[in-house]
Amino acid sequence: MYAQDIRILAEQYEEVEYLGVISASDAAALVAEHWWALLPIDDEVTRYAFPSKSSGYALAGAAVAAICGDETSVARWVKREGVGLVCPPHKSALVRFFSELEDICIEKFGASDQLKKRLAISSFSASLREVADKLSSA
């Protein structure tokens, strides 16, 4: 949706790089190289969906910068799990957020070992097996 805008920014600014569509494993490796991962999401969307990339960001060790309303499911998850910060979806708040990042202790954020275990594929598989076993025995 914003690919063309990002391409234009990448041509104008050396700080912006457009990679196009990349594989999930390449995306995870890329996120792991950075301290922060941006998670902008429309508040209305959070009523119906939860971005799966949020857990990928946490697993990769990047702090999540959730750009959404404070009362959304995403904001509550980021705060509850302690994996980042929430920034209101307004230009002035976003500018202030990025300006203040230098003063924030990065080690404060990141997925705990317990959360990483819960987000791991093996944990999801075990949960699915439990559900399947219950359904087959019913």
Rank of each mutant, 00 (worst) to 15 (best):
F50C: 11
F50M: 13
P51H: 05
S52D: 03
S52P: 01
S52E: 01
K53Q: 10
S54Y: 07
S55H: 09
G56W: 07
G56S: 13
G56T: 10
G56Q: 14
G56L: 12
G56E: 14
Y57R: 08
A58R: 04
L59G: 12
A60S: 14
A60P: 01
G61F: 06
G61A: 09
G61E: 03
G61C: 06
A62M: 08
A63L: 05
A63V: 06
A63Q: 01
V64F: 02
V64G: 03
A65T: 12
A65I: 13
A65W: 07
A66M: 11
I67G: 00
I67K: 00
C68L: 11
G69Q: 11
G69T: 09
G69P: 11
G69K: 11
G69L: 02
E71A: 15
E71D: 15
E71N: 15
T72P: 05
S73F: 01
S73Y: 01
S73R: 11
V74T: 11
V74Q: 03
V74H: 01
A75Q: 07
R76A: 15
R76C: 00
W77A: 08
W77H: 00
W77S: 03
V78D: 08
V78E: 09
V78F: 02
K79W: 09
K79R: 15
R80L: 14
R80Y: 12
E81W: 04
G82H: 08
V83I: 15
V83P: 01
G84I: 00
L85I: 15
L85W: 09
V86F: 04
V86M: 04
V86C: 02
C87E: 04
P88H: 10
P89M: 11
P89H: 10
H90Y: 14
